[in-house]
């Protein structure tokens, strides 16, 4: 079979294309800044949270399975519980870690008698990946081991690509990705919005097992309007809070508490798919006050987008300089 030049080029291009398709992510453009069309996420309402930690336990349990975010031979055998008391009675992590993707913390002030009050009060807060709309971790990862699903916006991890540079840890403003430093063959661990459960028609374990509706799952647009609506409710009045999912028929009738007038995650770091409501300022709940509305990828993209111009300038300028100076110094050349 003979092959002319055109065919050869075609074949070569197809081969190259296949190589690219198999390994590289679409190149050449800055990351999108809009909410993906079918974006899903979670809403956490600290005023509804009773601190039962059911979400933590079930997060660990339902992710310590094959394809789960804590998947590993060892973890599938026994979920990676963290004990802090010698009796080893319950899973009691102090922070997110390579073994814990989700944590309920309690923040106290003064006498800590009033729930959801900043002064002499306390509040719970649920920490895990916020599934940013333009995630810094995805922007930072050199090998696209962290990717954002273009449809539902879940920020997920492909362990076989990861080289373990930990730039994602540095880049994430919320300090979410954790690394298995103790292992010889470590992975990054973070909440992947339970995306391994969607095929079976299930959703985030933390929302499924939340008894009060403090954590609910759903489409981000619906979660946003639900959150905005709650801010308009009169404190002291009654409201039917949906349980498990935002559109759920199951409701829990509760007295409305006083909210801080802010939905966390609407604008922070360019917006996130995890939204929070609380009765105390988010800064007190551990959200860094230095996190602005800045889309972090823009900061590095300004640099990267200049590279082609730099290449052209240096090559042309350098060649010109060489040509000009060559003659001038000829006499000194050996």
């Amino acid at each position: 079979m003979s092959m002319n030049r055109r065919d050869f080029l075609k074949t070569a291009a197809a081969g190259g294309g296949m190589l690219l398709a198999s390994q590289a992510v679409p190149v050449g453009a800055a990351m999108p800044k809009e909410l993906p069309p079918e974006a899903i996420g979670m809403l956490y309402d600290a005023t509804l949270c009773i601190g039962c930690k059911s979400c933590m336990v079930n997060c660990k349990k339902y992710n310590s399975v094959s394809r789960g975010a804590l998947s590993s031979e060892q973890n599938i055998a026994t979920p990676p519980y963290e004990f802090s008391t010698p009796e080893k009675i319950w899973d009691d992590p102090h922070d997110l870690s390579g073994k814990t993707l989700n944590i309920i913390k309690v923040v106290k002030n003064g006498t800590a008698v009033n729930k959801d009050a900043a002064e002499n009060g306390y509040s719970f807060v649920k920490q895990h990946c916020l599934h940013c709309i333009t995630p810094a971790c995805v922007s930072a990862c050199p090998v696209a081991a962290l990717q954002k699903d273009p449809k539902n916006g879940v920020v997920f991890y492909l362990e076989n690509r990861c080289i373990g540079c930990r730039y994602c840890q540095l880049a994430c403003p919320f300090r979410i990705p954790k690394y298995e430093f103790e292992k010889a063959s470590p992975q990054v661990r973070k909440c992947q919005l339970c995306h391994h459960r969607y095929e079976e028609g299930k959703f985030s374990a933390c929302c499924e097992f939340c008894p009060t509706g403090a954590s609910i799952f759903g489409k981000v647009v619906d979660l946003r309007s639900e959150a905005q609506k709650r801010l308009t409710l009169k404190p002291g009045s009654e409201y039917d809070f949906p349980v498990q999912t935002v559109g759920s028929k199951e409701k829990s009738r509760r007295i409305v508490s006083k909210y801080i007038n802010h939905v966390y995650g609407m604008k922070e770091a360019g917006g996130t798919q995890y939204l929070l409501l609380a009765g105390v300022p988010f800064e007190l709940l551990g959200f860094d006050k230095n996190i602005s509305e800045q889309v972090l990828n823009d900061l590095t993209w300004t640099y990267i987008s200049k590279i082609p111009a730099v290449i052209a300038t240096i090559l042309i300028g350098g060649a010109a300089t060489w040509a000009i100076t060559k003659g001038r110094h000829k006499d000194k050349e050996e």
């Binding site: 190589l19 800055a30 922007s139 090998v143």
Partner: peptide, 13 residues
């Protein structure tokens, strides 16, 4: 890996 798994938004790449 970075040599074959390009990710041009990444400074690390």
């Amino acid at each position: 890996h970075p040599m074959v798994m390009w990710q041009v938004n990444s400074i690390m790449f």
